[in-house]
Write a protein that binds this DNA or RNA. Structure first.
Lengths: 110, 110
DNA sequence: CGTCTTGCCTAGATGTTCTAGGGGAAAGAA
DNA sequence: TTCTTTCCCCTAGAACATCTAGGCAAGACG
């Protein structure tokens, strides 16, 4: 039996992507890989979740896309945070901390 | 402007209910109220989410229901944790801690 | 009697993520 | 050369949880 279910917490993908892009532009494939690496392989972003999410975020103006070449000389679409994206990152970080604290509160109540 | 969006984190409702019932049987309405209170009004469980969730959990054998009278002398359905429910609570708590830690890891990466 | 509160319930909409595909192009092996 | 692997992008539809927006019954309280 593997580690079983519960990869991604619904509603946190935007935040994870925004944060991952905060350090500088990355292409989509790389965004997913970094989230997985930095979470010690706990969070796995499927491509079927990743790309639609990137489009939604682009439509909302949080990120901007530009075609380029990857470090492996492949055609790749690079995403970078917009000003609105940075603001969104701040907001979502605050919400996460608030909700996370709230859940912890409930779990700690004897 | 109010506190805006993001009440409940999708996927955490089962855990919150299980934990709330761990201290003893409660009726549905009360479960929602306690989650809200204990989270300092951050987590609000709508009734349209609550009851379907309770049914799912009952079907899975995590909780058991019994009709009774509330402290206000109203007809109410009391839910209590089964043995399987306690096991599930342990599992979901572990998953929550793992995922929460993972997200925090990503958010803390410079 | 009328209204408020408690408490349970449901159908349908909404939104996110996953499953399960497909495809092209560079790199490396045979 | 050809074959296979890896990288990188993309999409349609299913699955699932939560919310919206209602409805209903009965006790409390004026």
């Amino acid at each position: 039996m593997p580690t079983t279910k519960a990869e991604l917490l619904q509603g946190t993908l935007d935040l994870l992507i925004l944060k991952t892009l905060a350090a500088g532009p990355l292409h989509g494939y790389d965004v997913a890989r970094r989230i997985q690496q930095r979470s010690d392989d706990v969070l796995v972003v499927e491509e079927g979740s990743l790309y639609p999410c990137l489009y939604r975020m682009e439509e909302k103006g949080w990120i901007a896309a530009a075609w380029g070449k990857s470090e492996n000389n492949r055609r790749a679409k690079f995403y970078s945070l917009t000003r609105a994206g940075r603001k969104q990152l701040e907001e979502e970080t605050a919400i996460w901390e608030r909700v996370c604290r709230a859940i912890t509160l409930v779990l700690e109540t004897a």
